[in-house]
Simulated assay, not measured.
Amino acid sequence: MTSTPTADLSTAGVSIWLDDLSRERINSGAFKHLIEERNVVGVTTNPSIFAAALQQGESYATQIEALAAANIPVNDAVFDITTHDVAQACDIFGAAAKSTGGVDGRVSIEVDPRLSRDTEGTIAEAKRLHAKVQRSNVLIKIPATVEGLEAIACTLAAGISVNVTLIFSLERYRAVINAFMLGIEQAKENGFDLSTIHSVASFFVSRVDSEIDKRLDGIGTDDAAALKGKAGLANARLAYQVYEELFDTERWEVLAAAGARRQRPLWASTGVKDPALPDTLYVTELVAPGVVNTMPEKTLEATADHGVITGDTITGTYDDANSVLNSLENMGVSYVEVVEQLEVEGLEKFVTSWNELLETVQTALDTARG
Rank of each mutant, 00 (worst) to 15 (best):
K127L: 12
K127V: 07
R128H: 04
H130E: 04
K132V: 00
R135G: 12
S136N: 12
N137F: 10
V138F: 10
V138K: 10
L139E: 03
L139K: 04
I140N: 07
K141N: 11
I142A: 10
P143N: 08
P143Q: 10
A144E: 07
V146L: 14
V146P: 03
V146F: 10
L149F: 01
L149T: 10
E150H: 00
E150A: 09
A151T: 13
A151S: 13
I152R: 01
A153T: 12
A153D: 13
A153E: 13
C154I: 08
C154N: 15
L156G: 07
G159T: 07
G159I: 04
I160N: 06
I160C: 06
I160T: 08
S161H: 11
V162Q: 10
V162W: 04
V164K: 01
T165V: 05
L166N: 07
L166K: 01
L166S: 05
I167R: 02
I167M: 15
F168R: 01
L170D: 12
L170C: 09
E171Y: 02
E171R: 13
R172E: 09
Y173P: 10
R174N: 13
R174K: 15
R174I: 09
A175Q: 15
V176H: 01
I177K: 03
N178D: 14
A179G: 07
A179D: 13
M181I: 11
M181P: 04
L182D: 15
G183V: 12
G183F: 01
I184T: 13
I184G: 01
I184C: 09
I184D: 11
E185R: 01
Q186N: 13
Q186T: 15
K188F: 12
K188E: 14
E189G: 01
E189L: 03
N190G: 06
N190F: 04
N190V: 03
N190R: 00
N190I: 02
G191E: 13
G191M: 05
F192Y: 15
T196F: 04
I197V: 14
I197Y: 09
S199N: 09
S199A: 15
V200I: 15
A201C: 12
S202G: 03
F203K: 05
F204D: 10
F204V: 01
S206C: 04
S206Q: 07
S206E: 03
D209H: 11
S210Y: 09
E211Y: 08
E211L: 14
D213Y: 11
